[in-house]
Design a protein around this nucleic acid. Structure first.
Length: 1135
RNA sequence: AGUGAUAUAGCUUAACUGGUAAAGCGUCAAUCUGAUACGUUGGCAGAUGAAAGUUCGAUUCUUUCUAUCACUACCA
C-alpha cells in the first residue's frame, strides 16, 4: 500500500482514459465485473447489432454510452450483466456496397461473377471495418464482450433463425402471396423502400393523364339511378393510363357525396351522364364547361358551341354506389380467376376529394392501395392476371416493362417511353396512344398533361413501376392484438415513443413481407414442388440432412452437400464445415411426400428478421444453451437501447418474434435515443460537412468528458445538439473542479500523513459543515440511485455535477480550507479529511457509470493509501448505500441561508467597492421568527469567515426600524377566494406598516373583498422585511441583510495586514516554497504599513509562517507592492 | 399524407403534483483564493412559437394553427 496519495501536475483526460483502459485490459477488469457477480441475479441486456459496413459516427458514441451506463450501474448494484457484442452482416447496404466496389449490377451476379465469389466478397466487406468499430467501442469505454460476438452469417446463427421461422410457419402464420413493390424494369429488380427513398429518387415528370368514363351496367344500378336517360358513366382519373387495361374495380369513399351530372363529351360531343364527387364538379367542369340550371338550357347545346353546358342533378352517398357493375374499359382480356367479381364499385377509406374525381381507378396489379382495397372487398376483386406461356399467373406488363401479347396492338410495347433505348423511342407513348383510343371510343372525359413527382430507379435513372412480385409473408395481422397488449407491459423511455409511435404502428401493422430477392442473406428454408401444392420448411441442419437423405433415396438428389457435418456435434469446427447461404442451399433438391422433387424458394429472409432473432440466435438456441431462454436466465431483456430510428426496425422485429414464438415480450425496458445533430440543430451529413469524427473528439477531450457532456446536456431521447465547446466546458467545470478538489485534498493529506487510519469520527462529533455536506451527499446518493434505476441518466449526471461544483467545491472545501492548513492534526482536522474523503469516494462511485475512466482513476487513487476498500476497480465496487440517518434537512436549509446571506453581503461590498479583504464590523439581519433566528445563529461563524465581518447581529421586531412587505400566499389563498383572488391580492399588497404590524401581533386581520369580509391568518400571507432605515441593505429569498460599512482605523489596519498576508502568500507561491517552509520577511518602511503590522503582528506571522520580520529603510532586490495608500517593497527567503 | 417529438434570453438547458420564469455560455467591468480549476458581484437580454379554452392563477392541462425534426407510407 502506498503511503502517499498520488499527486498530479495537471488533468489530462485523454491520457487518464488511455492508462485506465490498459489497466482494465491487463487486469481483465471487464471479465471480472461479470465473473465476480457469478450466482447473483442477472440483469439481461441485448446488444443491437450494428452493421459494420460503414464507419462509426459520433452518434454511436452516444448510443454506446447509454447502453454502458446502465450495465455498469446494475453491476455496481450487484447484478450479473452479461453482454455479447454482435454484428449485423447481411443486407442490402452491404450488397450495394460490394456491387459498387466490383463495378457490377445485380444482373451480373451469377453471370460475370459466381454467387459463391459474390458472397465471399460480401463476407469480406462486412468485416472490413470491424477493427475500427471495435477500437471505437474500446475507446468510448463501452464494455461488451467483443471476443465472442454473435455474427449473423455464421451457420449457428442462421440455424437458429431457421428454427424460429419454422415455429412461426407451424403456427400457421406464414403464407405466400404477391405484393406490389417498386420495381425497376431496366435494372430488372425490385427496389426496397430504402432505395426508393434515396435522395434524388423522386423527380418531377410530365405525364399524360386521363379522366376515363366507365360505362355502368344498367341492371346493377340502384333504383334511384335506374330511370336516367341514356348511359351512366363513372369518372376516374389516372396519371398512369397504361394501368387502365388492368382496371378491375372503381373505389369510392363511403362518406363522400357524389352527384350525377348531365353534359356532353368534349371529344365526341355525345350527351353523357357522369358520376363524380360533388366537391370536384367545379374542378372537372372547368374551362370549356359552363354551369346551367335547367334541362332546357342543357338541351339547347349544339355541337360546335364554344361552351359546353352541364347540369348537376341528383346526389348520392358513396356507400350507395357500392356494388354497381360497369363494362370493362379496355376489354383485351379478363382476369383468369373469378372474372365475375371484377368491374364493380367498391369502397375504400383512403379516397379523398383533393384531386381527381373522388372515384379511384383501381388496378390491383399495379398499386399497393389498389391491391389492398381489392383484397378487402367482399367478394374479393380479382387482379388482372392472365396465365402466361408456362401457365403461371402474370400481369399485363412483363418484367421488362412491355405489354404482354394479350394487349393486341400494344403487345410488346414498353409502357413508358423512357424504357426504349435511344433512337428507338416511338413518337407517341403508350399513355398517349391509349388516350387517343379512349377519346375516339367515347371513353375519355378529359386528357391533360400533368406534372407530378415520380420515383426513379437510382441506378438507371428510369421511372420505376409498381409491380406485383411474389413474396413470403408473416401474418402480423393475426398477432397484432397480442403484440399490442404485450407492448403495454414494456417500459418505454420516452413513454410517448412506446404508446404513440410504436403502439400506433402495431395497431395498424400490415403483414410482414419477408422475401428479398438478393444473394447475401439467410435463405428462406422452404422447399416447394413446382406446382406449389406441396412444401416443406426446414428448422435445423439435422432436419435438412434427413430430408436430403430421403431425397437421395428417392433418387431426386444425388449427393449430400453437408456430408461432413455431424449432427449433434456443436463444436465450432463442425459448424465451420457447413455454409447455409444461397449458393449452397440452392443446390439442394428435396422430395415431397408424394415423391415429387422440391426446389428451394429462391428468396432470402429480410435482414430485420436476422436481428430480431438475436436474443435466441446469439446463443444458438434451442440447439445449445436451451436453459438461458427456457428458464428465463437470459430472456427477456431487462434493458435495450438503440436509436429512435429502430422503433420500426429492431424494436419491432424483436417484439414481433418474441410475441409469435414465445408469447412474451423480448425486452422490459427500452430507451430509444434521439439523434445527434450539429450545434445548429442541423442533421449531420457528409454532404454538409458538419460531421464530427468520434476519434478526434475522443483524442482531444477524452471519453469521460464526451460521455458526460452527451448525457448531461440532453435527455437521451431528445435530439442532442452536439457542440464541441460544450465538452470543453464540461471538462473545465466538472472534471476540472473534481480534479482540483482531489489535488487540494492530497496536498494536505500528504503533509499530515492522513491515511484514514484513525477511527471513524461519529457523525455527532463532526462540525456543522461536515454534517451538512454528508447530508447533501446522502440526499445525492438517493437521487442518483433512483434516477439510474428509472433510466434517467441525465438527471443523475446533472445532480452529481451540481453537488461537486456547488456543494463540495464552492462551499464545503472553500469554507473548510483553513481546517486543512491550520492547526494540529486533531479531531476537527481528521473529521475534515474523513468527510472530504468520503464525499470524493462516493462521487467516484456515483459517477462511474457515466465517466468510467476518470472515476476509476479517482477511486483507485483514493483507496491506494487507505485500504478502505480493496476492489481492483470502481466498477467492481458496490453502489453507495443511502443512509437516512445522515440526512438533516434543517441543516441543509440552514446552509442555504448562509449561502444567501453571504451572497447578499458580497453584493453589498461590491456595490460599495469594499474589498472582501477589508474586514467590516458587523452585518445585521432582521429575523421575524424564532426558527430563522436559530438557523442563522447556527451558521453565523461560517458567514463571518466567508464575508469577512466580525459580528452577525440579528434584529428582531422590537427594533422597530424594519420596513416590511407583505405578499399573499397564492397557493393557500387561491382556493379560498376563488374569483375574488385578484381583488384580495391587490388589497393585501396595499397593506401599510400598521396592518402588517397588526397581523403579526394578533395573527390575523379582517379585510373586505367585494363587499364580503374575511379573516386572513398569518399563514396565508408572507411577510418579509425589505428595508432598514438608514442602512445599506439587500434582500433575496425572504432574507434581508444590512451591512455596516464604517471602516474604523482599527479595521483599516487589519485590512492592510490581510492584504499584506495575501502578497506574502503569493510571493511564497511564486518562489516555489513548500507550504510548510518558515520564512524571513523583509519589508521597506512605510508609515501606514508599520502601524498596521504592529497591530496585527501575531495574525500576520502565523498566517504566513513568518519566523522573522524586519523593516529596512531601503530594499533593492524585492517585489514592489502597492495597494490603497501603501507603497512598499517585499523580500522573502527561506529560513 | 399519417404518426410521434420539439418550440423558453443571441446560444444550450431548468422550473416537483398548475402558484407568479431560473442557470450556464457569451460580453463588459469589478473581485475572492497557498486550489494553475471553479467561483463571487454588477451591467447587457426573454412577458415561455401563435391563437383560443379550462382556472382565482397556465411554461405546465385541453383544442386549433404555424415552424422544425424524425419515422413510415404514398401520390389515384
Amino acid at each position: 500500500m502506498a503511503n502517499k496519495f498520488t499527486e498530479y501536475k495537471g488533468l489530462n483526460l485523454p491520457v487518464v482514459a488511455e492508462e485506465i483502459l490498459s489497466y482494465w485490459e491487463e487486469n481483465n477488469i471487464f471479465e471480472k465485473s461479470v465473473t465476480s457477480r457469478e450466482g447473483a441475479e442477472s440483469f439481461v441486456f441485448f446488444e443491437g447489432p450494428p452493421s459494420a459496413n460503414g464507419l462509426p459516427g459520433i452518434h454511436h458514441v452516444l448510443a454506446r454510452a447509454i447502453k454502458d451506463i446502465f450495465c455498469r450501474y446494475k453491476t455496481q448494484k450487484g447484478y450479473q450483466v452479461k453482454r455479447k457484442a454482435g454484428w449485423d452482416t447481411h443486407g442490402l447496404p452491404i450488397e450495394l456496397g460490394v456491387e459498387k466496389e466490383l463495378k457490377i449490377t445485380k444482373e451480373d451476379i451469377g453471370k460475370k461473377i459466381s454467387i459463391v465469389e459474390y458472397n465471399e466478397a460480401c463476407k469480406k466487406a462486412v468485416m472490413r471495418y470491424t477493427d475500427i468499430w471495435n477500437n471505437m467501442t474500446r475507446r468510448t469505454g463501452y464494455w461488451v464482450d467483443m471476443e465472442t460476438p454473435y455474427i449473423t452469417y455464421k451457420s449457428k446463427y442462421m440455424e437458429s433463425v431457421w428454427w424460429l421461422l419454422k415455429q412461426i410457419y407451424d403456427k400457421d402464420l406464414m403464407y405466400k402471396g404477391y405484393t406490389i413493390q417498386p420495381y425497376s424494369p431496366k435494372a430488372g429488380t425490385g427496389l426496397s423502400s430504402h432505395e426508393v427513398n434515396q435522395p434524388g429518387a423522386y423527380q418531377d415528370v410530365t405525364d399524360t393523364t386521363v379522366v376515363a368514363q366507365f360505362k355502368t351496367i344498367k341492371e346493377t344500378l340502384p333504383e334511384v339511378l335506374q330511370n336516367i336517360d341514356g348511359d351512366l358513366h363513372f369518372l376516374a382519373w389516372t396519371t398512369t393510363p397504361w394501368t387502365l387495361p388492368s382496371n378491375t374495380a372503381l373505389t369510392v369513399g363511403p362518406k363522400i357525396e357524389y352527384v350525377v351530372v348531365k353534359s356532353y363529351n368534349q371529344y365526341t360531343f355525345e350527351p353523357i351522364n357522369v358520376v363524380l364527387a360533388k366537391n370536384l364538379v367545379g374542378k372537372q367542369f372547368a374551362g370549356k364547361f359552363t354551369k346551367v340550371e335547367t334541362s332546357e338550357e342543357l338541351e339547347a347545346y349544339q355541337q360546335g358551341d364554344k361552351k359546353i353546358p352541364y347540369l348537376v342533378t341528383t346526389e348520392h352517398k358513396g356507400s350507395d354506389l357500392v356494388g354497381i357493375k360497369y363494362e370493362q374499359l379496355l376489354d383485351y382480356v379478363l382476369p383468369y380467376q373469378n372474372p365475375e367479381n371484377a368491374f364493380r364499385v367498391i369502397s375504400g377509406d383512403f379516397v379523398t376529394t383533393e384531386d381527381g374525381t373522388g372515384i379511384v381507378h383501381t388496378a390491383p396489379t399495379f398499386g399497393a392501395d389498389d391491391a389492398k382495397v381489392a383484397k378487402e372487398a367482399t367478394p374479393e376483386v380479382p387482379p388482372l392476371l392472365v396465365l402466361d406461356e408456362e401457365g403461371n399467373p402474370a400481369p399485363l406488363v412483363n418484367l421488362q416493362g412491355r405489354f404482354r401479347p394479350e394487349m393486341g396492338e400494344f403487345g410488346g410495347k414498353y409502357v413508358k417511353n423512357e424504357y426504349y433505348t435511344d433512337g428507338e423511342t416511338p413518337e407517341k407513348s403508350i399513355d398517349v396512344e391509349l388516350a387517343i383510343k379512349l377519346k375516339t371510343e367515347n371513353k375519355a372525359f378529359k386528357v391533360e398533361k400533368y406534372v407530378h413527382s415520380y420515383p426513379h430507379c437510382w441506378r438507371t435513372n428510369k421511372p420505376i413501376l409498381y409491380y406485383p412480385l411474389d413474396s413470403w409473408f408473416i401474418k402480423i395481422t393475426d398477432v397484432k392484438d397480442r403484440m399490442h397488449r404485450l407492448n403495454q407491459t414494456i417500459n418505454w423511455k420516452p413513454k410517448s415513443t412506446g404508446e404513440g409511435r410504436f403502439g400506433n404502428w402495431i395497431a395498424g401493422a400490415n403483414d410482414w413481407n419477408l422475401s428479398r430477392s438478393r444473394f447475401w442473406g439467410i435463405p428462406l428454408p422452404i422447399w416447394r414442388t413446382e406446382d406449389g401444392k406441396e412444401e416443406l420448411i426446414v428448422g435445423s441442419l439435422e432436419e435438412l440432412k434427413a430430408e436430403i437423405k430421403k431425397a437421395i433415396d428417392a433418387g431426386v438428389e444425388n449427393k449430400d452437400v453437408y456430408a461432413d457435418f455431424e449432427v449433434g456435434n456443436m463444436s465450432e469446427e463442425n459448424y465451420e464445415k457447413v455454409d447455409l447461404h444461397k449458393h449452397v442451399v440452392d443446390q439442394i433438391t428435396l422430395v415431397s411426400p408424394s415423391g415429387k422433387p422440391m426446389k428451394r424458394e429462391s428468396d432470402l429472409i429480410d435482414v430485420w428478421f436476422d436481428s430480431g432473432s438475436m436474443p435466441y440466435a446469439q446463443w444458438h438456441y434451442p440447439f445449445e444453451n436451451k436453459e438461458l431462454i427456457d428458464k428465463n436466465e437470459n430472456y427477456p431483456a431487462n434493458f435495450i437501447a438503440e436509436g429512435v430510428d429502430q422503433t420500426r426496425g429492431w424494436f419491432y422485429t424483436l417484439h414481433a418474434i418474441g410475441t409469435m414464438v414465445f408469447d412474451s415480450v423480448a425486452y422490459k425496458n427500452v430507451v430509444s435515443n434521439g439523434l445527434v445533430l450539429d450545434k445548429n440543430g442541423q442533421k449531420m451529413s457528409k454532404s454538409l460537412g458538419n460531421t464530427i469524427d468520434p476519434f478526434t473528439t475522443l483524442d482531444t477531450y477524452g471519453p469521460d468528458a464526451t460521455r458526460w457532456y452527451m448525457i448531461s446536456n440532453a435527455n437521451p431521447w431528445d435530439n442532442l445538439k452536439f457542440d464541441l465547446e460544450g465538452i470543453a466546458e464540461v471538462r473545465r467545470k466538472f472534471f476540472g473542479t473534481l480534479y482540483n478538489t482531489y489535488s487540494f485534498f492530497c496536498l494536505y493529506a500528504n503533509i499530515d500523513n492522513f491515511t484514514y487510519s484513525e477511527a471513524e469520527i461519529p457523525l455527532t462529533e463532526r462540525p456543522e459543515i461536515d454534517r451538512w455536506i454528508l447530508s447533501e451527499l446522502h440526499t445525492l446518493i438517493k437521487f442518483v440511485d433512483e434516477s439510474y434505476a428509472d433510466y434517467e441518466p441525465t438527471k443523475a449526471a446533472r445532480a452529481i455535477s451540481e453537488f461537486v461544483q456547488e456543494n463540495l467545491s464552492n462551499w464545503f472545501v472553500r469554507l473548510s480550507r483553513r481546517r486543512y492548513w491550520k492547526g494540529d492534526y486533531q479531531h476537527d482536522k481528521i473529521s475534515a479529511y474523513q468527510t472530504l474523503y468520503t464525499c470524493m469516494l462516493t462521487v467516484a462511485k456515483l459517477g462511474a457509470p457515466i465517466a468510467p475512466f476518470y472515476m476509476d482513476r479517482l477511486y483507485k487513487d483514493l483507496i491506494q493509501t487507505t485500504g478502505k476498500e480493496n476492489f481492483e476497480s470502481v466498477h467492481l465496487a458496490q453502489f453507495p448505500v443511502y443512509d437516512k440517518s445522515f440526512v438533516d434537512k434543517s441543516l441543509e436549509r440552514k446552509m442555504e441561508k448562509a449561502q444567501t446571506i453571504s451572497s447578499l453581503v458580497l453584493s453589498l461590498r461590491a456595490k460599495e467597492k469594499i474589498k472582501v479583504r477589508q474586514p467590516l464590523q458587523r452585518v445585521m439581519i432582521p429575523v421575524l421568527d424564532v426558527e430563522t433566528k436559530a438557523d442563522i445563529t447556527a451558521v453565523a461563524d461560517l458567514i463571518k469567515s466567508e464575508v469577512n465581518v466580525k459580528e452577525v447581529e440579528l434584529l428582531d421586531d422590537a427594533s422597530g426600524i424594519l420596513v416590511k412587505q407583505i405578499k399573499p400566499n397564492f397557493k393557500v389563498l387561491g382556493p379560498k377566494f376563488g374569483k375574488d383572488m385578484k381583488a384580495a391580492a391587490a388589497a393585501i399588497m396595499q397593506f401599510g406598516q400598521e396592518e402588517i404590524a397588526k397581523i403579526e401581533k394578533t395573527g390575523k386581520i379582517t379585510i373586505e373583498i367585494n363587499g364580503k369580509s374575511s379573516t386572513l391568518g398569518i399563514t396565508e400571507v408572507e411577510i418579509t422585511s425589505q428595508d432598514i432605515e438608514g442602512w445599506l441593505v439587500a434582500n433575496s429569498g425572504g432574507i434581508t441583510v444590512a451591512l455596516d460599512v464604517t471602516i474604523t482605523d482599527e479595521l483599516r489596519k487589519e485590512g492592510i495586514a490581510r492584504e499584506l498576508v495575501n502578497r506574502i502568500q503569493n510571493a511564497r507561491k511564486d518562489s516555489g516554497f513548500e507550504v510548510t517552509d518558515k520564512i524571513h520577511v523583509t519589508l521597506q518602511k512605510d508609515e501606514h504599513l508599520v502601524d498596521a503590522i504592529n497591530s496585527n503582528l501575531d495574525y500576520l506571522t502565523t498566517e504566513t509562517l513568518t519566523a522573522k520580520l524586519e523593516f529596512v529603510d531601503q530594499l533593492e532586490n524585492g517585489t514592489e507592492i502597492t495597494f490603497d495608500e501603501v507603497n512598499t517593497v517585499l523580500f522573502i527567503k527561506k529560513m
